[in-house]
Amino acid sequence: MSLVDVQNVTKKFGHTTALDNVSITFDNGGFFGLLGPSGSGKTTLLRTIAGFYYPESGSILIGDRNVEKIPVEKRDIGMMFQSYALFPNMSVADNVGFGLRVRKVPAVEEKRRINEALELVQLQALADRRPSQLSGGQRQRVALARAIVTNPKVLLLDEPLSALDKSLRVDMQIELKRIQREVGITTIFVTHDQEEALTLSDRIGILKAGRIIQAGTPREVYDRPVDAFAAGFLGEANWLPQQLLDGLTLPGEKQSHRFAVRPEMLTMSDAAVDGRNSVRGKLVQRVFAGALATCLIEVKGEQWKLIARDRDLPDFAGEGDVWLNWAPEDTIRVPA
């Protein structure tokens, strides 16, 4: 069942088309990641769903209500901002309770719901603090509690973790996922970090120049990217040089298509392996990084990358000619 349904939405800023006829459906209760390079329209899409921007054309459904002409404050959304945007003149509890007071929720219920929300993000002890007395991670959680305390239909997050340092970010990812599961709220979040998108999302959408080029589960998008951009953006791709295609087992017609293999699908050997696709290359570098090793191999002028458990790699003496092998069904095929 779809909760948010964006249909043929176009949004322009002057001469820039930030969203170009975008259609995408967000399922009820799902955790949806919008992924794309900077300037691809992720923020614009999120803010158009939120109601900060009105689209030039197209329709947006939240639940069964057409909202494209309804202002933000009437859309019943929850949003978390990159800067957290906590009200500096209010305590943590008052920040969380803001949306409830605006909705004129009775005082007793307000108090109970503030407590529940703070409990969910494990911050009851700090209810009376000012935002300026909190750490980055704590502010983040207050912002989250404030966004979900009103039970909005959909939670919108714009690069919610980008202001945190790496280790805190990973903690917050886990926390965010836990809270989202517990509350069951439909969540749409924007990121340019593919790892984050893969960790958090049930489904992802890839944006490029204002268009959704692919949407699906992370697995689907990773295993069957629709084009070269999607293949390169989510995960890494080793592109097969055109002159090597003959003699390989390929999934479909060669005509006007390109083929690639993911680095972790490759094995390395000193001779071609029967039943697998094999190409010859020159081992340029082998980098040991604990459990995994990364090898850089030159294949007919293309830089290829192989990732494998270090102990699974044969012991070649540094550099030299090698064979790279993979199962034919692991070949990715996209239109050229």
């Binding site: 990159q82 945007a85 009200f87 605006v102 909705r103």
Partner: peptide, 27 residues
């Protein structure tokens, strides 16, 4: 003033008058 404060208030359901009175003016 961080304009996101006004946006946050609106996303929480506050109309322009409430935003002005509760968020912008105090600042």
């Amino acid at each position: 003033f961080d304009i996101a404060l006004e946006e946050a208030a609106r996303s929480l359901g506050a109309d322009s008058w409430t935003v002005l009175r509760r968020v912008t003016l105090p600042w």
